[in-house]
Design a protein around this nucleic acid. Sequence first.
DNA 1: AAACGGATTGGCT
DNA 2: GCCAATCCGTTTC
Length: 210
Amino acid sequence: MTKLSFTTPIKLPFSYFLNQDVIFLAKDLLGKVLFTQIDGKITAGIIVETEAYFGVHDKASHAYGGRRTDRTETLYSQGGISYVYLCYGIHHLFNIVSSVEGEPHAVLIRGIEPLIGKDIMEERRKMSASKGAISAGPGSAAKALGIDRSFNKKDLGGDEIWVEDHGIRYDEEQIAASPRVGVAYAQDHALLPWRFFIKENKYVSKPNKI
DNA sequence: AAACGGATTGGCT
DNA sequence: GCCAATCCGTTTC
């Protein structure tokens, strides 16, 4: 299923997030390991579901048409920082801002497979890590990792939140691409296949199962 | 100043 | 499957 090679885990360098091809990045982030450290508690999960948001050109993006507000300002930062916002008044959704300064591209993290600190995640989510629901879906994944609004605009190269490459690679046939979830309002952009996920992985959200 | 509605989730029917 | 929860950024009056 998941292929592991025994390379030393490497924190992704700042330059990784400067890539201007956010569609490539959304797919390439699958298998990377997302870490948080909060009050000394370290949790991490393998990224198994993402969505690409193509900046000013994307009707589903908060920055569509170049819109700049207090909230979206974060998206215009240089790649390598986090964009966290509150959705439906309840859920914190975590994105990785990418590309160069002024290009508001971002990758929404929609699902992680618990890897490190599972007991801490179980406490946060009040359910067993063996249940897919513990970290499937963007709100659940963020909560399992302890991500809230205070993580907005944080540097992904710091010691509070970062991404590592553990050498986890998926074959092309293990990866599915489908329309993004919950963006019906985006009209002709609603059906773009910019959601990427690992097939058969239980930590992938249910909507649109492909 | 007030109203609207969302990149969702989980509990109840 | 349906629907309420619950907040605040954004739009509109």
